[in-house]
Amino acid sequence: MDSDSNRTFDISEEDIYEAMKEIEGYLDITPGDFRALYAIAHRHAITRLATSVKAGDVMTRDVVFVEKGTPLAEVADRMAREGVSGVPVIQDQKVVGVISEKDFVFAMGGEALRSFMAVVAHCLGNKGCAALPMRHQAAEHIMTQPALTVSMETPLSKVANIMAENNLNRVPVVDSEGKLLGIIARADIVQTSCTVIIPSEGMRPSSEGVA
């Protein structure tokens, strides 16, 4: 963590020396002390931003989801059409699980085949498609449950930790009753972190028309 934050801020004593020359008057600090101060202040700023941005600020509200009883053929079809690699599974508006590509791969290979390439190899070296046995199953049969969820108020840093610790690519955002409000994908976090730290062209008020 420490070495990571040092790598990102990377301000040299030369930079500081040049900046000090631009400020009129005698500054009662050495470039070395300023650099140390800056590194710590930078870390504080990152922490502040990480806790001030909440899940509700970055989540996608228009969520693609399926019902608990949705047939897997339809689940796969919807995921393919919408171009998502995972969907929350809903029962009575409440999130009861999540289905991702990973769940399909696992379901196709059972315990033995734990990667997509293993499934491909299995199909090519064997007889027919490994997906066929799932034809009569529904979402609830292969979904990962219970779903790990976060609330609107969860700091983005905590969402990121939950994803990293559980190796998830998306986390549904739910209200206090467990009803689906939105979803946060890994990419949302990367994008938010980057725009917070290095504002993109679109974020700057001067340049307009960039989405």
Binding site: K21, E24, G25, Y26, I29, T30, P31, G32
Partner: peptide, 14 residues
């Protein structure tokens, strides 16, 4: 020592 002396001030400041 670990760092260098801060820059000199301008003639204006002097």
């Amino acid at each position: 020592g670990t760092t260098k002396s801060p820059p000199a001030v301008s003639l204006f400041e002097i």
